[in-house]
């Protein structure tokens, strides 16, 4: 009985981990700025389009600078008109390289986690 009592939570804990094997489902179709884009102007926001509808409660994106500090305005949201689009606003950015990290959940219950980068160029 005691063994069983210990085994059940352990088994459940193990179970809780398994779906990690089924990552990469919804696919990023397009982004503005595009992956590895070099921009002259600081973009007002980052927009990501996926091939499947997203669950707003579990779809997040954040923009970090080279130092790893979060620079976006923390207003990431799935668009109410098009639930395949995720957007986050940006303040005017200093020249440099930025990373957009995102983790989204599609309506069929799969998670995708990835990142892309873009650069804001120094204006001559």
């Amino acid at each position: 009985m005691r063994v069983a009592r210990r085994l059940v939570p352990a088994g459940l804990a193990v179970l809780a981990l398994w779906p990690a094997a089924a990552l990469a489902h919804a696919v990023l179709v397009k982004s503005v700025p595009a992956q590895r884009a070099a921009l002259v102007e600081s973009p007002p926001r980052v927009e990501l389009w996926f091939n499947e509808r997203l669950e707003p409660a579990y779809s997040k994106a954040l923009v970090t600078n080279e130092a790893g500090t979060q620079v976006d305005l923390r207003d990431v949201a799935v668009s109410p008109e098009d639930s395949r689009r995720l957007a986050v606003s940006l303040p005017p950015l200093a020249p440099g390289r930025y990373t957009v990290s995102f983790r989204v959940l599609s309506v069929d219950g799969h998670v995708i986690e990835s990142k892309l980068t873009f650069t804001v160029k120094d204006r001559r």
Partner: peptide, 19 residues
Amino acid sequence: LVVIGAQTALFEGRAGAAF
């Protein structure tokens, strides 16, 4: 119950969330 616990862990990205 087990399935929804596992899905919670997946959605939250933490094993502990299942409980």
